[in-house]
């Protein structure tokens, strides 16, 4: 549905986007992730035909953004970072203008307005002036504007910024409901956003592509083996930490054991498995068979947060390093 090849956008002095390529299939919901100033907005602006690329190609539904901008624009709904609202208009009036501008006939417009005000929960404020609305409502009016012509592709620049937690959940649910029929790209610098909403994630940093994969794969790729936190009760100085460590190392499927700390009568370890092995049951058995008390045992997953920091801070090499160290998630 969306195809970007070697896209580069250079401003007078800076390179905002540097040779990015990716593809998005129809019906996918893709998170565009990166720190502030990474080039997310620029890429989106190129896709919406607001900015022409310096070099490279971008196309939506087979139409090139430079050769066929009108066809691309017809298929795209775009919510910029600041919703493009006219404060002097009423909500329904604004949606009518936006809809007509995007080519909806005057016969269909009322139906479309009903539809999007319903989906974005704007029913109560239809006749209010946009200038008098709160930030959350404005964001939703902006979203309604992007959806008004029922576009194939929705491009949303930080759709949940400025919303309260309840509204964020509502927007996420709305986006997930839209995903099947629409292709959605949303940018964000909040990781939880991507974990909750998106199937795929594109991470960019300083204008370069850092990673592109499904959310599940990305998590797996960066930690192919399982990491397990184990806590053994050692009240009264028994058992000896080295003894426990040796026991754990002998359990089948364990690749290495790191002692994290030992205090207040508790010893904590982080145990990593060999590739593709599940070791939690073995570890439990090892501890219990030795006659010790097992306080706690749980899998440690790297969150997107860790992955993101690894990818953006030091690149792939550092990510590998971190994995070997088995840094636990707190």
């Amino acid at each position: 549905m969306i195809k970007v090849e070697g896209l580069t956008k250079r401003y007078a002095r800076t390179v905002a986007v540097d040779n990015i390529s990716f593809e998005v299939e129809k019906g996918q919901i893709v998170g565009f992730l990166g720190p502030n100033g990474a080039g997310k907005t620029t890429t989106m602006r190129v896709l919406t035909c607001f900015l022409p690329p310096t070099s490279g190609k971008a196309s939506v539904a087979g139409f090139d953004v430079q050769e066929n901008p009108l066809e691309v624009k017809r298929r795209i709904g775009y919510l910029p970072e600041t919703p493009p609202l006219y404060p002097e208009m009423e909500v329904s009036e604004y949606l009518r203008f936006a809809g007509r501008l995007k080519g909806i006939s005057s016969a269909d417009i009322a139906k479309r307005i009903d539809e999007v005000t319903g989906r974005c929960a704007l029913g109560d404020v239809r006749n209010r002036l946009i200038g008098k609305l709160s930030k959350g409502f404005r964001q939703r009016v902006g979203l309604a504007q992007a959806m008004i012509h029922n576009p194939d592709v929705l491009i949303l620049d930080e759709p949940t910024s400025g919303l309260d937690p309840k509204q964020i959940i509502e927007i996420r649910e709305l986006l997930r409901a839209l995903a099947g029929e629409h292709t959605i790209i949303l940018s964000t610098h909040i990781l939880a956003e991507v974990e909750h909403t998106c199937e795929h994630v594109i991470i960019i940093n300083k204008g370069r592509l850092a990673a592109i994969d499904s959310v599940a794969n990305l998590t797996n790729r960066l930690r192919g083996a399982e990491a397990v936190a184990v806590e053994v009760d050692a009240a009264g100085g028994q058992p000896n930490p080295t003894e426990v460590q040796q026991r754990l190392e002998q359990a089948p499927g364990v690749s290495r054991v790191v002692m994290k700390d030992s205090k207040d009568g508790r010893i904590r370890f982080e145990v990593e498995s060999l590739q593709g092995r599940h070791i939690r049951a073995e570890l439990a058995r090892a501890v219990v068979n030795a006659g010790w008390n097992l306080n706690e045992l749980h899998a440690v997953g790297l969150s997107l947060e860790d992955i993101f920091l690894q990818l953006t801070a030091a690149g792939q090499g550092a990510a590998e390093e971190n994995r070997k160290e088995g840094e636990p998630k707190q």
Binding site: C49, F50, L70, T82, P84, L85, Q145
Partner: peptide, 14 residues
């Protein structure tokens, strides 16, 4: 200034 130009320039209008 308000950014509404983005709406106009990304709509299918010449």
């Amino acid at each position: 200034r308000t950014g509404t130009i983005e709406l106009l320039l990304t709509s299918p209008v010449k």
